[in-house]
Amino acid sequence: MTPYHFKSALAGLWKEKWINLLSTLSIAVGLFITTVGLLVVYNVNSIAQKLPDKFSITVYLKDGISQADTQRLQNTIRSNEYVRKISYISKEDALRDLKDSLKDSAYVLEGIDNNPLPASFSIKLRKDYVDPAKVKRFAGQIKAMRGVDDIQYGEQFLSSIQSIMSGARLAGLLFLGALLVGVLFVCYSTVKILFYRKADEVETLKLLGATGWFIRMPFLLEGSLMGFFGGLAAFLAGYGVFDVFLAGFSSSVPAIGYFLVPSALLLSLPAAGLFIGFSGALIALGRIRS
């Protein structure tokens, strides 16, 4: 690449400024929507990462189980490779928790002499084992143990969350793929049109002895610059929407504050635009026959 190629590319961009501006804006819109899609996938993923921490299994113990049996059972469960943490909740603790959670309505418990609540274990699993099939197998093992009355965990919840997560991820990736192909096509068709418009000039360059790369270079630069500026516009739009607008709103709508926007993603937009612009132009130019 020489200063001549760069000057030619800039002159070419300026000469066809309207079509180039439209293409650049199309690239910007495409990349912006792609970014929104990526952010959704990213956030779904980060929720999916946190889910195992929230997931717990409650094991209810039979009434009248001895302290020694309780201790033995706790030890057995703790030694299982699935288990990250196990905590014992006595009948009294359970009642106190219930009262706490009922708060002002705690009077409904008045008049109950016997504590009807069972003692229980609350089990947190290791991250890798929070999976519908594995949890089911584990729950089966526990339930079969002596002294265990019942076991409860969000079976339905777990499997539906899992399928939503994987569905969302797949849909997101397909959507992103389609959008990127769209952006690539914008670059491709713009450069193709520019190339056709300059068919005479290209023919003259060939007859003067220019090599294929000499002819291609200004077009490749034009495609790359359009992609870069499209990416830059998408970055500015993304920065405006996510960093300024959403941050302003998060004080009144706290949920917005949980929406994560990795700045590396936004910062990589101009580079991504440049790469897509260059690739689109390269495909559009193809082989140049002498």
Partner: peptide, 24 residues
């Protein structure tokens, strides 16, 4: 071969009948 043609043409200066000047 097609890839050798540019080098051949660089050895030859052509005064085209239709000029082929780039108007821009």
């Amino acid at each position: 071969r097609a890839r050798h043609i540019p080098a051949l043409r660089r050895n030859i200066g052509v005064v085209f009948q239709d000029f082929r000047l780039l108007s821009g």
